[in-house]
Design a protein around this nucleic acid. Structure first.
Lengths: 114, 114
DNA sequence: AAATCGCATAGACAACTGTCTATGTTTGCT
DNA sequence: AGCAAACATAGACAGTTGTCTATGCGATTT
């Protein structure tokens, strides 16, 4: 079987001059892909729940119940966020702990500057 | 015929404490709807093109050619942005001029704070 | 009044997305 | 070794979305 590894989005390459100057298609598509990863109510809640947890980290089993979602659905959303570089995965034993990539998060605010 | 007027999203009500605390479903949905309006490459380009135009304003006919899109498609995207409060519409004669709502734009960066 | 121009709206269609169930994979324990 | 728990992956399906063509509406000009 072939495992697909998505190339992480190069945030620095997105809209190098912000949105003040007209940006090209490739840059617009990268920025849109990044924002699309956040533009979902479930994923926004996941981010906030992870951040509000002890040590600002959470495993999948801690996130299914408060959001009333099945485990595969939560895993799917976490994968989307991880592929966009917005959260990070760390396996410790059987559990997988997710944390928010704070640095990446702050970069987004800068990309939206006008 | 019935004209549908979308209620503008109350940005201030979105994630009042940022994403640091776990936010509820309604707030997450409002914030997601707002981000969804931006999370499209064409709309990102439209925003940047409007901002880079003379007086930071542009009419539809100025936007179709550089983006290689039909006029209805551009109008559609501008409506999405306008409904989200991200741009503003002003009719002067036959032309309709769009400008970016700078204040609204800056609010978004704050909403993403962690 | 008639024609034209700029823009919005309606409807159609392919592509994408969020959710689920079913199943696979890895780790820890007895 | 065998079993159970935590998570990922695959596939299916309904709902959403971006684009187009066709058409309608208001303002300007002749």
């Amino acid at each position: 079987m072939k495992t697909l590894t998505l190339t992480p989005i190069d945030v620095a390459a997105c809209a190098p001059a912000g949105l003040a100057a007209p940006i090209g298609r490739p840059e617009a598509e990268q920025l849109a892909a990044l924002l699309k990863a956040i533009a979902d109510p479930t994923r926004i809640q996941l981010i906030s729940y992870i951040n509000a947890s002890n040590n600002a980290e959470a495993c999948v089993c801690n996130l299914t119940e408060p959001l009333s979602l099945t485990q595969p659905t939560v895993s799917h959303h976490l994968k989307v966020l991880a592929d966009a570089g917005l959260i990070e995965r760390e396996k410790r034993g059987t559990w997988v702990w997710y944390t928010v990539n704070q640095e990446r998060w702050q970069q987004i605010a800068k990309l939206l500057e006008i």
